[in-house]
Every structure is written in C-alpha cells, then in structure tokens.
Design a binder for these strands. Structure first.
Lengths: 258, 258
DNA sequence: ACAGTCGTTCTGTTGAGCGGAACACACGCG
DNA sequence: CGCGTGTGTTCCGCTCAACAGAACGACTGT
C-alpha cells in the first residue's frame, strides 16, 4: 500500500496515467509532449489527450510548447492539510526553531505508512536538497520517521514494518528489522532520534516526536537537518537535540489545547 | 477556457471524473462512497473504482468508511508554485503587512484567465471566509483582480474580458464591460483598487498591483480585506491603500532583483 | 531547400471503464 | 432477535472511449 510499485494494477488506468504525467511535470519543471511521451513510454497522442483534459480542468497550463502544473493543486493541497491541524500550530514554532539553529527544519505527518512533510522552514544558510513540502519519506530511514515509529503502538508498528522494503538507500541505512526495533527502543527512552547519512550522504538530522499532551499519542515529528560539516560534537549530540525536543513538546501542547 | 463549464467535453473522461471526485472530497471534508456517487450522479461502483485507484496512487486516504484527500497534493501544489517565484518574495512582506493592518491579506497570480491566491496571511481578528491558498477568484470582481487587470496590456485585457461571464455575484458587482474598463483606467491612474462588497456581502478590500521594477510588467497583485464595519473612513480610503501599495511596490522590487 | 525537431489531428480497434445487481457488514428499532 | 436500511464492496457483462500509430503542419537550424 505504501509503496508505488504495488503489483495489482489500478482499476482506472486513465487516472493512473494522468497522475504519472502530472508527477513527471512536477519533477521536470514543466516540459513538452514528446519528452513526456518518451519518458512514460506512451504514445504522443495519448499524452496529448491527457494534457488537454487536464488543461481544461485547470490543473495544467500551457505556455507555448510547454506544459506546467497548474496552481489549482495549491487548493487541493491546502484542503488536504486542513485535516491535519498539526500544521497550523507547528508553523510558528518551527520558524523560531529554525531561527535558533540556523539550519533546516521540517514537520512530518504519517499517512498510509509513509511520512509526508507538511511544513518546512529554511534558514538562509540551510542546505538546499530535494526535500520540500509534500515530500514523501520513508519512516525507517529518516530521523523524523524513526522518532515517530518509536512512539507508535506495537500493532501499528508491526503493520508499518511489514510494508517497509528495506532497500538500503545509502551504505549507512538500516536494513534489518530487528536492528531497527532495538534502535527504536533507545529512541523512545532518549526522546529524540539521529540520522547520520542514512538517507542522504553528507546530511545529518535530529528528530523528535510530537506527542499529544493528554493521551501521549504520537501526532507527528519534527526534525532539524544540516550538513555533516556543521552538525558535529556536542552541538549535534546535545544542544540541537535539546532544542528540537523542546520545540516538539511545545507543539504537542499547543496541538492538544487549541 | 477559464471557466469550468466549457461546452466541449474532455477527451479523457476517466480523468475528469477522478478530479470531480477529488474536488468534491475537498469541499466536504472527506466523505463516503454513497454520498459522492449521489452528488456526482454516478454509480457507486465507478466512484469506488476511482477511489481505489487514487488510494493506490497515494492521493486519497481511506479512514474507515470515509475517504479524504491525501497529503501528496501538497507536493504537486508546491511544485506548481515554484514556477511563480513571486510567492517567496511576497511571503515575508505580506506577513508584515498583515501585522500592520490587523486584517487579512492575500497574494494573487493570474493563470489562464482567472486569479489564484498563492499566499494568504491572517491576523488574529481577521474574518474567516471561504478563501484560502489555491482559491480561484474572478479577475473582474475582486480588488486584486481589478488591480491586476488595470495594468495588463490591452490585447491581454481584451482576451480576458472576452472570457468573463458577467454573472453578478452580489448586487454591487459590475456587470458591464465598458463600466469596468473606465474603472480600470481610474485604478491604473490611482495605483490601487477598491472592492466594496462586490464578491462577498459585508467585506471590503483594497488591492494593489505588483509591478516588475524594470519593465513595469504586472506580476500579480496583493490585497487587504476586512469587514465593512472596520473598513471605513480614511482608514479604508487612504491609510490602508497607502500601506498596500507600499507593500506591493516592495514586493515588485524584490521580485525583479533576486 | 532540406532534414530534423516540435505539437497537433485523425482513424480504427480493442480493452477497460462503466452501470446495475448482488453481496457482506454494521447499525437502530420494534 | 430479525428486520429494514444504511454503509462499502464485489461481480459481471456491454459498449464506448482511451489508446497506438501514422500522417499532418509549423518551426528551426543547417
């Protein structure tokens, strides 16, 4: 369910094709029909039909010989985010956290076995990577994901781990389910999680869970990430974790009483 | 093209149906199969097929007997917004404008004949309406839209006005094309536009165009809106316009040199 | 003028998206 | 307890529409 390459085919093929086109349009910053047709191994006419339909619906705009994603998706995205009220309470606190540490911070929420960034704040000197709002991340290979998993009830955790494909993304990625479970226990006790180049070489991160203040349920997670050159020593191991955990706690309190 | 009810049918019907379902899911905050099927006058099985497909693609999540929009749309929306670099430069300035006037402000960009809010900032006492990020608005019935139109080249203006259906939304809405043109001339000279309950009864707004600092091209528009009870006298007619126009100018300058 | 793009249009065929009916399950009520 | 009614889900054929491929203009740089 969580991964894209599910074996069972989608029942509505045309819809799947449309979204493949849209996703490709997002990756490249807009492109033409032929480029899309080739990269999706579909005929030009089919791609053209879909683009025309999406254009009429307002989800794609045409600029000369190029097609781009339409801004209407902002509306759908905003509507989807309104269900997760965590966003509104986390936004200001995340901004001040970024101001304090001078790196990058992101707020994650789980959806259907994967993590999705609902907010991201960047300091001026923060490292620009491919992650942004709406980025889908693995729960077991990020500091936010592990902080989240560490506080998940056992049955939910089992369900998530069953879906996870342990395809090591970097040489440091955990590939063993048991090793992950023992690390999650440590994280739960410690209160925050580290990520040392597991997902992206050259990047380290510190994540903390956002817990409901009354029933202790985990609502999401927040993390700060930066380059290995700056994330070192007690700054990486103590001071940043302290600040992240504190911000996470504040967000958790605000989320429960609002 | 700009409006939804275009006579010519979409070539890919399944895609259109999928998006109708998604839009409906957005309006109601998630709902069930039967409710969707009835309101779209489609069979339950068809709706179910589409929902399953969208769920596998990650754009819809299922929670018990309810379906909701998935957070993946955040990614598509963010990608679409990246093309309009206006967003990044306008965000901080809009926030400080809101802090100064204590109402609501929104940044608009044109896309295919309609206006779309790419950012919105709310003060604590701001009026909550149905507008939010991604909201599609008519260019001729909003202060942002008119401020934008007033600085559009003649040929582009003609093209937009041809598409506009003058369906008066409130008793105050302008319904005559010529009357609109004369008002646009005044706006262009004055530098800002007013909106007195044209779109929403009880709401007034002041909008100013965001112009490129070098070639004077109009990039978008920004507006402040609030209730008629608070938007009165010189505050509405002079002070707020002054602040909005100043913010618009700052954004225009930052947008050109960045 | 030519060959190389690009996007667009056309047409036939087949498979897939569709509606309708039947199913399984959860309620609430007498 | 059944019943009635409400879900969401599954099944199954029929037909229409989504697809591939080829042909068409319009450009662009040889």
């Amino acid at each position: 369910m969580a991964r894209d390459d599910t074996p069972n085919a989608a029942s509505v093929g045309a819809t799947e094709r449309s979204f493949r086109i849209l996703e490709r349009l997002g990756e490249r910053q807009g492109c033409g029909v032929s480029e899309l047709a080739e990269s999706l191994s579909t005929s030009k006419s089919t791609v053209h039909n879909h683009l025309q339909t999406l254009k009429e619906l307002g989800y794609v705009v045409q600029e000369g010989d190029e097609y781009r994603l339409g801004l209407q998706f902002l509306g759908l995205g905003d509507r989807a985010r309104q269900h997760h009220d965590l966003y509104h309470v986390a936004k200001p606190e995340t901004d001040s956290l970024v101001e304090a540490v001078g790196e990058r911070a992101q707020v994650m929420v789980e959806e259907d076995g994967v993590g999705i960034y609902v907010y991201q704040s960047l300091a001026d000197q923060a490292v620009r990577t491919d992650s942004h709002i709406g980025t889908v991340v693995d729960l077991h290979a990020t500091s936010v994901g592990k902080a989240y998993l560490a506080h998940l009830p056992d049955d939910r955790l089992d369900a998530v781990l069953d879906q996870v494909a342990f395809d090591d993304q970097t040489p440091s990625t955990l590939t063993d389910a048991e090793a992950l479970r023992t690390e999650l226990d440590e994280i739960a006790e410690r209160g925050y999680a580290f990520n040392d180049e597991e997902r992206t070489v050259g990047m380290r991160a510190v994540g903390a869970p956002i817990l409901s203040a009354d029933d202790g349920r985990v609502l999401g997670a927040i993390s700060v990430s930066g380059p290995t050159t700056r994330m070192t020593g007690t700054w990486y191991h103590e001071e940043v974790p302290e600040m992240v955990a504190q911000s996470a706690q504040i967000i958790g309190i605000r989320a429960t009483y609002s």
